[in-house]
Write a protein that binds this DNA or RNA. Sequence first.
RNA 1: AGAGGGAUGGCAGAGUGGUCGAUUGCGUCGGUCUUGAAAACCGAAGACUGUCACAGGUCCGGGGGUUCGAAUCCCUCUCCCUCUACCA
Length: 425
Amino acid sequence: MLQINYLRQNKEKAIKGLQKRHFPDAESKIEQAINLDDQRKKAQTALDNALSLSKQYANEIGALMKEGKKEEANQKKDAVATLKNETKQLQDGLIEVEKQLNELLYLLPNIPHESVPEGKTPEDNEVVLEGGTVPTLSAEALPHWELIKKYDLIDFELGNKITGAGFPVYKGKGAKLQRALVQFFLDEAEKAGYLEIQPPIVINKDSGFGTGQLPDKEGQMYYIPQDDLYLIPTAEVPITNLYRDEIIEKTALPIRNVGYTPCFRREAGSWGAHVRGLNRLHQFDKVEIVQIQLPEKSYETLLEMRNHVEKLLQKLQLPYRILRLCGGDMGFTSALTYDFEVFSAAQQRWLEVSSVSNFETFQANRLKLRYREEDKKTTLLHTLNGSALALPRIMAAILENNQEEKGIVIPEVLHYYTQFTYIGG
RNA sequence: AGAGGGAUGGCAGAGUGGUCGAUUGCGUCGGUCUUGAAAACCGAAGACUGUCACAGGUCCGGGGGUUCGAAUCCCUCUCCCUCUACCA
């Protein structure tokens, strides 16, 4: 959630920023927010004054009672009665204004960083750099959904049977390869200074609001009504929320956490032509890195995280490219996002495998996540996260790109974890 | 799941209707002393909101209520502890 004071002080910048996202009526929405905030302040002051007076009366009555002047005390009580009515009305008014203001602020996405390119669609994303080499496959090369059948690595039909579409069952070397990748990613993160966290994979409403999934993406999460809980769409949610309502000591920064969790996404409405095989699932595994950093250092950190992800792809010897997302394609809460895509050679498609973002204070504002400055004031921190990495599409790319006539070559860095070097043959 | 007890500032722990935002101890920070440190002594310090700055307001697990007045009374939810029962 954007800070209302930021909108006041940087109105023009905010309007331009929202326009970059093609957010409709940016100017009037921001003006409306500021107006509501003005009203809020007035209402708050009026209420405070009324409360202050009530307190004063209460103390006076207390003093009179002590002195045994019951008559006078009772007279005062009568005087307070009307004041109480007023107070109640002022309070209701304030609550209403606050509600309106919040509802409006919830709708406003984050202001994009100045380096975010103009544009509306994924085609407008800026390719920052490309790496690795795309293998030349034989004419008989198979897409991964054929390969996993051929070598019995993943079974979608079994998943259908016990759960439903989008919940695959990993078997044998398929399961092991996935586990090896997870372990590899975790170890790499740990080497880079991240503390491993194993969080719950169901979260409450407060956590959903804290990182911005609620109310924006209500329909995209699996919900358990009986207990009013949600299945996590990413480890970002529980891990970032660990620091909700915290004031962090400056010396503890940056906070680096890594977590491996399954992720659950309903993907309502996004099922279409390109979702065969592992390309899009309702449940998938992901290793997520999260950092909490001082505002002045967060873009340095973003780059550090980007480099970390890049190294993983290099070690796996996958062809990749890094995109800087344009204003129209960026997520609601992000100020700047780098997407990583790997080239899946048999499908001849780029697949998104990671998204690394700086949220600046957008999440921290709702999380009330702050640090203390030298002058004792508390200031909102910046939150960042990135996938490092999402498993299914990495699996898809490895299977497709490393296929040979008789089987699939396992990338060398994984041998230690898989205990096998080849699938098939 | 049943019975009972509890939730107060970084931690421990007082406070059961009237200046209590809260006694005290530990821890933290500053100072005196010391070559330096420890000890001792003196002092400072909660969060949020708000203001140019004051002032003012809110916060004693969450929510609601009683009262002129609530940390203190009532209702409700959540969590924790002990005992009993059950179970990966």
